[in-house]
């Protein structure tokens, strides 16, 4: 089942001054349960594409269809609501809420969704256990390592039961041990719970473990390989 369809996506930054054509006609479909790496040299348009799919930024031309809905038709507040219900984000810089504990960070989106306390509690415990942080539940981000923070971020992204998870260079700030651990967790979630991941990376060890690798160059897809 297709969850995301990108059709002829074009993105031009600074159309009035010196235009930068960051995406130049990208076609891509993402299916339920995929574990896809988006690769390509710096400036090839990975972040731009992920932001567009995540509804964080608008395309100049082309369409992004998620669950048969063209996200360009949404108003700003509908888009926020759509993100909240359907998309989980993992950022390169973790971006946790500094004043909240690991538990509260994971719980946050569920609170925004208005989930009951009981549902929240079970899920937070479940997720933090899944990312191996059952003992660190009450620590704040400043009391956690980068790898641990990023695992909290993955747990947070999953808390809302999104359709898929977008991650822009989630391991860029992590050492190789933490990178491997995080990938283990992501792959396990992908295999056991059939959670769809789309992430960008420069890291060959990460690319090696992806099950599909989409390569961008100058805003175009130059290769799309599935690994079995």
């Amino acid at each position: 089942m297709n969850i995301v369809t990108v059709q002829q996506a074009q993105k031009t930054y600074n159309p009035d001054k010196i235009p930068v054509h960051a995406l130049q006609g990208v076609d891509l479909t993402i299916e339920q349960g995929e574990f896809t790496a988006l690769v390509g040299p710096s400036g090839s348009g990975k972040t731009t594409l992920l932001n567009a799919i995540g509804g964080l930024d608008l395309l100049t031309a082309g369409k992004i269809i998620i669950n048969n809905q063209d996200i360009a038709t949404f108003s700003d507040s509908e888009l926020i609501e759509f993100r909240k219900q359907n998309i989980g984000f993992v950022f390169q810089a973790y971006n946790l809420i500094p004043v909240f504990t690991a538990k509260e960070n994971v719980e946050f989106v569920m609170l925004l969704q208005g989930k009951s306390e009981q549902e929240r509690d079970t899920r937070v415990r479940e997720l933090l256990t899944a990312v191996g942080l059952a003992d660190q539940i009450d620590r704040r981000p400043s009391e956690l390592s980068g790898g641990q923070q990023q695992r909290v971020a993955v747990a947070r992204a999953l808390a809302s039961k999104p359709q898929f998870i977008l991650a822009d260079e989630p391991t860029a700030n992590l050492d190789s041990k933490s990178t491997a651990d995080l990938l283990d967790i992501m792959l396990e979630l992908n295999q056991k719970e059939n959670i769809t991941f789309l992430f960008s990376t420069h890291d060959q060890r990460v690319i090696d473990r992806a099950r599909r690798v989409v390569t961008l160059e100058d805003g175009k897809i130059i290769s799309d390989e599935r690994v079995s």
Binding site: D76, I80, E81, R83, K84, F89, F91, I97, L112, Q113
Partner: peptide, 16 residues
């Protein structure tokens, strides 16, 4: 600012 960007990204309403 960065934090507000994150809050908006994960679904916090502007009103909130």
């Amino acid at each position: 600012t960065k934090e507000f960007g994150m809050l908006l990204a994960v679904g916090m309403k502007r009103k909130q």
